[in-house]
Simulated assay, not measured.
Amino acid sequence: MDNPVEGETPQARLKQLGMLSLLYTLHLANIPLTLTNITEKTGLTRGGAAEPIDQLVGRGLLTERWSKNALGRGKAREFEISDALFASLKAASVARGE
């Protein structure tokens, strides 16, 4: 997040940080990271939720895959926090002596 993408505003980075915080909370609660679950928790529209998520995927902080939706008939985008992000957080924690 220290390296803004060209044309990216501080507001966009703040949205991404907030979204990461929410996604981590859902991850800890074992709630699948889907757009439906995110919109239910935040009240955002699908487009409003997809914008920061797509930016996080582009940065490599989230990985995206397709899974079956809750009804089992259609497809849903499901996200995971990348292993690289967990590794960098762990390294930062070790560096601070935590």
Score class of each variant (00 low, 15 high):
Thr9Gln: 12
Ala50Gly: 00
Pro32Arg: 13
Leu71Ile: 02
Val5Ala: 08
Pro4Gly: 07
Leu35Trp: 04
Met19Phe: 03
Leu85Met: 09
Ile38Gly: 15
Asp83Phe: 11
Gly47Lys: 08
Ile31Gln: 13
Met1Gly: 15
Glu64Met: 14
Phe79Ala: 01
Glu40Ile: 04
Ala84Pro: 06
Thr34Phe: 03
Ala12Ile: 01
Ala95Met: 13
Leu28Ser: 08
Asp54Ala: 14
Leu26Gly: 06
Leu28Val: 11
Glu78Gly: 01
Thr34Trp: 03
Pro10Gln: 04
Thr34Lys: 05
Leu33Asn: 05
Leu56Asp: 02
Glu80Gly: 05
Leu22Val: 09
Arg59Val: 03
Thr42Glu: 07
Lys15Asn: 06
Gly18His: 09
Leu33Gly: 05
Leu44Arg: 10
Val5Tyr: 01
Ser21His: 15
Asn30Asp: 15
Lys41Val: 01
Gly60Val: 13
Lys68Glu: 00
Gln16Asn: 03
Arg13Lys: 12
Glu78Met: 09
Gly43Gln: 10
Pro4Trp: 05
Ala87Ser: 12
Thr63Lys: 03
Leu20Asp: 04
Gly18Pro: 01
Asp54Pro: 00
Leu23Asn: 05
Pro32His: 12
Met19Ala: 09
Ser88Gln: 14
Leu89Ile: 13
Asn37His: 15
Gly47Leu: 07
Ser21Ala: 15
Val57His: 03
Glu6Tyr: 05
Ile53Gly: 02
Phe79Trp: 03
Glu51Met: 06
Leu23Val: 07
Leu17Thr: 08
Asn3Glu: 15
Trp66Gly: 02
Tyr24Val: 09
Ile53Ala: 05
Glu6Lys: 03
Leu85Thr: 06
Glu6Arg: 02
Leu61Gly: 00
Leu22Tyr: 06
Leu28Phe: 04
Gly7Ile: 00
Thr39His: 08
Lys90Gln: 15
Thr45Phe: 02
Gly43Thr: 10
Asp54Tyr: 11
Leu20Cys: 09
Asn69Val: 01
Glu78Gln: 14
Glu80Pro: 04
Arg13Val: 11
Asp83Cys: 09
Ala50Asp: 06
Pro10Glu: 07
Tyr24Pro: 02
Ile31Pro: 08
Ser82Gly: 11
Pro32Lys: 12
Leu28Lys: 13
Leu44Asn: 10
Ala29Lys: 13
Met1Val: 03
Thr34Gly: 07
Ser82Cys: 12
Leu89Phe: 14
Ser21Cys: 15
Ile53His: 02
Leu33His: 07
Gly47Gln: 11
Gln55Trp: 08
Leu22His: 07
Pro52Tyr: 04
Ser93Cys: 13
Lys90Ala: 14
Leu23Asp: 05
Gly43Leu: 08
Arg73Met: 02
Gln55Thr: 04
Gly48Asp: 05
Arg13Ala: 10
Pro4Val: 05
Pro52His: 06
Arg13Asp: 06
Leu71Ala: 12
Thr63Asn: 07
Gln11Ile: 07
Ala29Ser: 09
Lys68His: 00
Met1Phe: 06
Gly97Gln: 05
Tyr24Cys: 09
Leu23Trp: 06
Glu40Leu: 07
Ala84Phe: 08
Tyr24Gly: 10
Asn3Met: 13
Ser93Gln: 14
Arg65Met: 11
Ala76Asn: 03
Gln55Asp: 14
Gln55Asn: 14
Ala50Ser: 13
Ser67Glu: 10
Ala92Arg: 15
Leu71Asp: 12
Val57Tyr: 04
Leu56Glu: 01
Ala70Ser: 15
Leu44Lys: 12
Ile38Phe: 11
Leu44Ser: 11
Met1Ser: 10
Ile38Asn: 12
Asn3Ser: 13
Ala91Ser: 10
Leu23Thr: 05
Ala95His: 11
Pro52Ile: 05
Leu35Asp: 10
Gly74Leu: 02
